[in-house]
Computed example of a mutant assay.
Amino acid sequence: MWQGAKDEDLQAAAAALRAGGLVAFPTETVYGLGADGLNAAACAQIFEAKGRPQDNPLILHIADRAMLEDIVEPLPPAGQALADRFWPGPLTLILRRRETVPDVVTAGLDTVAVRWPDHPVAQALIRATGRPLAAPSANKSGRPSPTQAWHVQADFGDELAGVIDGGQTAVGVESTIVDVTVDPPSLLRPGGITKEALEAVIGPVADPTLTNRPKAPGMKYRHYAPNVPVLRLPNAGLDTARAFLAQHAGEKVGLLLDDESLNVLAPFDPSVLVWNLGPKTHPELAAARLFDGLRRLEAAGCDIMLIASYDETGMGLAVANRINKLSQPLKEEDA
C-alpha cells in the first residue's frame, strides 16, 4: 500500500497507471478505482475487476482546464456556471465528448462524465500521471462504496497494482451528477453538492428520465449493499424498531440509526451492534459514516441490519438515495 503523503509513492502509482495498471486512490467523496482514462484496454480492466456491467459509464477525473478541453466540447452556459462554482469539488458534469475519449468509458454514448476532484492526493496523482483518470468507486459492483483504504483491500486483496492510503474520505458518498447537455439540466445522481445549491446557481434542475442506456453511474443497478439483509426503518418508527429487536432477540443485529433514535431505544441486548449515524438534523454526518458502518457491522458478523430513513432535502437526498438502493423497507411481518 502506498501512502498519499509520500511523493515517491505517488510517482510509483502514476507509473503503474501509465503502464496500464489499476490503482485505487482517495478523493473527497469515496476511493476511486483508477485507470488511464484515455487507454481503452486499461479502462476495460476496471469493468473486469469490479464485475461492472459494460453499459455503466465511467467518470473521467481531471486536474486542470487543459485536460478538460482535451476530452470535451466547449461547456454550455449551465455547465460553465456549475464548473466555475463547484470545481474542484464533488460534482460530476455530463458533457459532449471528443473523439479522444474511448467508447468503453462512455458505454458508447456521445457524452462523457467528468469531475475535477478536490483532494490533494487525487489532484497530485492525476498531474503525475499526466492523463485524465477513469475512476468509479473502488469496490466490487453492488458492494458499499469505500471510504477508507482497508475497504478497498477487503474487496480486491492483491488484484490491483496498488492502493494509495489517504485516510478517511470527507464527504462519504459519491459525487452529484448533473447532465448539462439537456435543458433544463437534469440531476442524475444526488451527492456531495445538494440540489438546492445547484439551483441557486443555474435555476431549476430536473429529475432524470430513466432509460435502458444510463448516462451516468448509479442509475440502473443495485448498489452499495453489504452481504447481509438491510431493512429500512420508516421515519417515526421506533415502536416498529422495538418490535423488530424483540423478534430478533438473540440474533446479531446491526443498527445504523441516528443518535436520537439510539438514545430512545437503548439499552440494547449484548447481541445488538450499534453504529451511530449522527444527529438526524445533520445528514452530512450520516453520509460520511454510512458506508464505513455497513462494512464494519458486516465484518463483525451481523445476521441482519436495520437502518434509518432520511428526508429527501439537502444532503438528506443523497443519503436517502444510497439507503434506498441498499435496503428494503421494513414490513410489519418483518417486525
Rank of each mutant, 00 (worst) to 15 (best):
G250D: 05
A320F: 08
A243E: 02
A287D: 04
A83I: 01
L82R: 10
V173Y: 10
C43H: 02
A200M: 07
D9I: 02
A288M: 05
S175H: 06
L60D: 07
G4E: 08
S141H: 14
H282A: 14
G316I: 11
V230S: 04
P136E: 09
V319G: 04
D303G: 15
T240E: 09
T169V: 09
R232G: 01
F268P: 03
G34M: 05
L133W: 12
L273C: 02
A124E: 15
F86A: 07
A318D: 02
N139C: 13
L255E: 01
G32R: 07
R143C: 07
N324G: 09
A15G: 11
L109Y: 09
L294P: 09
A299Y: 07
A19R: 15
A40T: 05
T111E: 14
L294Q: 08
V105Y: 11
A128G: 10
H61Q: 13
P77I: 03
Q45T: 00
W116N: 13
V264L: 05
R242P: 00
L238R: 03
T111W: 13
G191S: 11
Q328M: 13
G293S: 06
D155Y: 05
P53G: 05
S309E: 04
A161C: 14
L33G: 02
G172E: 10
G34P: 10
A246L: 01
K140S: 10
H282M: 13
T100E: 10
M305N: 05
A83P: 00
D84P: 01
I193Q: 04
V201I: 13
E312D: 09
D103E: 15
G254D: 08
A300P: 06
N263W: 01
K215T: 07
G32Y: 06
E8D: 11
A15V: 08
H151K: 15
V272L: 01
Y310L: 04
I193V: 15
L265D: 03
V274I: 14
A13F: 07
Q148P: 06
G192C: 07
K215R: 15
N212H: 12
V201M: 03
C43I: 04
V152D: 15
G130P: 13
L290C: 07
E284R: 11
M305F: 09
M305H: 04
V171G: 04
Q328K: 13
V180G: 12
E332R: 12
I177K: 09
P279V: 03
A246I: 00
N276K: 04
S261P: 02
K215N: 12
S309Q: 03
L330N: 03
I94R: 13
G34N: 08
W150L: 15
D303S: 15
A161I: 08
D183T: 14
D311F: 13
P190S: 08
A128F: 05
P279Y: 01
A154D: 15
L290R: 03
P120S: 14
P204M: 12
D292I: 03
I323F: 14
A236D: 09
E69T: 10
P283R: 06
T209P: 01
K280N: 00
D165V: 10
L38G: 12
L58C: 01
Q328A: 14
L256T: 01
T240K: 15
P184E: 10
E174Y: 07
Q247G: 00
P283Y: 04
P214W: 11
P102V: 06
K140M: 11
L58Q: 00
I323W: 15
L95N: 07
R85T: 07
C43W: 00
R52T: 04
